[in-house]
């Protein structure tokens, strides 16, 4: 058995795999956190500024929407490179786990913002009207009615964003980002170590599966419809 493992996975350094997995976890976790912190308010504003919504602002909507669209239309691999000077300015390096987080947030936050906007649009207008009729101000409408009603949709959005960030995080290996993607490129691709490639891909698949399952459970838990 051991001989078989040695033959099949001779190049696999399990310690390195463990460190890389942890790095991926940190990159995805941190960038998801910042994507939510930045994307959620942008999504709420996109919704409120939209046509026939509470704070209808055609100009503000157009500007915000344009910025979001620009960030979303740049392929992530290009965004990674374009962001390098900015990342260096922000945290001193564009390499490693820390260096990967700013471009990941730049890719994740606008993506999440759109998902938030969409799930807020799904909230029944009648509920907003009823809340207004109770004398709620705009802050109370957002936190008391809109966000709680849209919560299952927002959680589903977080899940989709997290999974997108897993694949973005793997891509960041190309510019020295660290994590499983970095491992796959340096060992699996550049040194033709197929076994490393297979392991990293398998781990990524498992990671995505776990995220999706956890997300689905949470959505179900918060759905009262």
């Amino acid at each position: 058995m051991e001989a078989l493992m040695e033959n099949l996975m001779g190049n696999v350094d399990w310690l390195e795999i463990g460190v890389a997995s942890w790095d991926t976890l940190v990159m995805v976790g941190m960038s998801l956190l910042f994507s939510i912190i930045i994307g959620l308010p942008i999504g709420v504003l996109l919704f409120l500024f939209g046509k026939r919504q509470l704070l209808e602002q055609p100009v503000a909507y157009a500007v915000l929407s344009f910025v979001v669209n620009v960030l979303r239309s740049v392929p992530f691999i290009i965004l990674l490179i374009v962001m390098i000077p900015f990342t260096v300015m922000l945290i001193g390096t564009s390499l490693g786990v820390a260096g990967a987080i700013p471009p990941l947030v730049a890719g994740g936050a606008p993506f999440f913002a759109r998902l938030v906007e969409t799930s807020l649009r799904e909230v029944d207008r009648g509920i907003i009207e009823a809340t207004q009729a109770m004398g709620a101000n705009i802050r109370q409408i957002i936190f008391g009615a809109l966000l709680p009603e849209a919560l299952p949709g927002i959680i589903a959005g977080i899940t989709v964003t997290a999974i997108t960030l897993v694949s973005y995080a793997a891509m960041s290996g190309v510019i020295g980002g660290g994590g499983l993607g970095d491992l796959a490129i340096r060992f699996g691709y550049q040194r033709f170590q197929t076994d490393v490639m297979v392991i990293t891909v398998a781990l990524l698949v498992i990671f995505v599966q776990l995220l999706q399952m956890a997300g689905d459970r949470l959505v179900l838990y918060f759905s009262r419809k």
């Binding site: 009729a133 009603e149 419809k225």
Partner: peptide, 11 residues
């Protein structure tokens, strides 16, 4: 105010 479709908060 009450409404045709009740407009209760489902959450």
């Amino acid at each position: 105010m009450i409404f045709q479709h009740f407009n209760l908060l489902s959450s």
